[in-house]
Structures are given as C-alpha cells and as structure tokens.
Amino acid sequence: MDYAIQQVLNALSFGAEYALLALGLAIVFSIMGLVNFAHGEIIAAGGYSMFAITSLLTGNPFVVIVGALLVAVLASVLLERVAFRPVRYADASTGLLTAFGVSMILQNLFLLLVSPRPIAITNLYFLNWPIEVAGVQISTLQVFETVTTAIAICLLVVFLKKSSFGIAMRAASLDFEMVRLMGIRANRVVAVAFAVSGLLAGLACIFIMARRGSVDPTFGFNPVLKAFVACVLGGFGSLPGAVLGGFLLGAIEVGMLVLLPQSYGGMKEAFVFGIVALILVWRPDGILSPAVEKGDKL
C-alpha cells in the first residue's frame, strides 16, 4: 500500500513538472504556432542564474529563486524579440527549425562562457527532505511541486478568463489577425505569452534544480523533450491538453519504472516514446486537440 501511494505521488510530481513545461510550450504555440524548442535553454538559463547569484551576490535561497524566475522571464522575452520575431508569420516548420537553431546557440554559449562540466548548486536542497505522513515516507519536494503546479494552473486560468489581456490571448489563439484588427498590439500579446512561458519554465527550473543540484549546458534538453511529447499527447496548442499530456506522461513514466524489470531499466525511454507514438497513431492530433477553425466564407 505504501509503495502504491509513493508511486502515485511520484507520478503526480513528475506529471506536475511536465505539465508546467508543456504549458509553457503550449501557450506560445497556441498564439503563434511556434514550437519553441529553445524552452529548455530558458530553464538552463534559470539554472545558471542561480549559480551567478549564489557566487556573486548571496546564497539566500529566496533571492536565488526570485532571481531565477526573473532571468527565465527576461530570457524568454528577449529570445522572442531577437530570434522569433522575424519568423512570426512563417509556417510551423520554419519556426521549429529556428527554435532548434536558437537552442543550439544557447547550449554552446553556456559551454563556451561557463563550462562544459556540470556546476553544483546546492542551496535549494532544503526544499527536499523526507517526511512521514500517515506512515508513508514521502518527500516534501514532491508535495511542493504538485501544489505549486496546481496553484500556477489556477492562476493561469484566472488570468486567461478574467483579465482583458487574458481574453485577448485566448482570442489570439483562435484568430491572431482579428485580434490585431481590434487594435490590440500583436507585439504585446506575443511578449506576454513568452513572459508567461518563461515564468513557467522558471518554476520548473527550481524544482529540477532542487532535485538534481547541478546545471550543465544540456540541462534543458531532456525536460523540453518531455514537454514537447506531453504537448503532442494532449493536443498541440490546447492548454488543458498540455496539462493532461504532462500528467499522462508522468503516469506512463512511473508505470514503466514499476512494471519494467530492473534489467530493462535502460529501455524506459524507448517504451515511453513507443507508447507516445502509438497514442499519436490512434489520435494524430493529440487527445484534446483544439477545434480547427474552418475558414468557411458563409
């Protein structure tokens, strides 16, 4: 029983992390049709900023956390400004390849300017200590992660439903040009989308960091790959889909860990991606794919 509860919690916390990352991808995609593969490097930038703040300013964890969030938001907005604006109205594959290029540049910049080797950042370990609840051993980090994700999703929903800017962003995901025809500045909508996306990446970065305790140039690669998969699973461009896909992916991963015999441990990824491919064959546009606007004239 304990084991089962632990695994469920595992699945939830993995899923929460993936949901955060996938939401970040989905919010940008829903508005401008861009698959932002450089999202991973935003996460890595957050990680490196933790290192910079710790070694230059202070090791105070709250300063470090706030600083990392800020850097992630700024980096995300800056990337849009510099790299993605020229391809804003281009087709999806042009945007995807641009994002690959940006990701490659940033990874190698980290390598060139900081170090190819992992850098230890241990001042977030305090988030992660074991506690016993009703006789079950769990880690606080998992609780924090799940709760934070839940709060972030709620805030995002409120923002999108209640604020006038949120309404504009939802409208932009349906018909961007029409939103501009309402006098709403395209640059501002896109910038806010990237800022939200960066904030979500920053949150994810904190939890990944608290678990791993080190950052290296390819730090963001695996998380963004998972986020990408989660988005596709849920239906690209659908925000509820991203959340569903994230949690589903978390569940599949933990399920694989539980079900696969020890000797097949290295094959976990292969099975996870195999299941994902099968789901896509079953539903090519993902589980909750958004309704396609049929541009009928009447």
């Binding site: 290029g101 490659m104 540049i105 190698n108 910049l109 980290f110 390598l111 060139l112």
Partner: peptide
C-alpha cells in the same frame, strides 16, 4: 573557444 562550432551552426540555421 569550445562550442564555437555549435554556435556557428545555430546561427546558420537561425
């Protein structure tokens, strides 16, 4: 300048 080739490749794509 380790990583320069990767940067150049990325710049070419972008």
């Amino acid at each position: 300048l380790l990583g320069l080739s990767g940067i150049m490749l990325g710049v070419v794509i972008v």
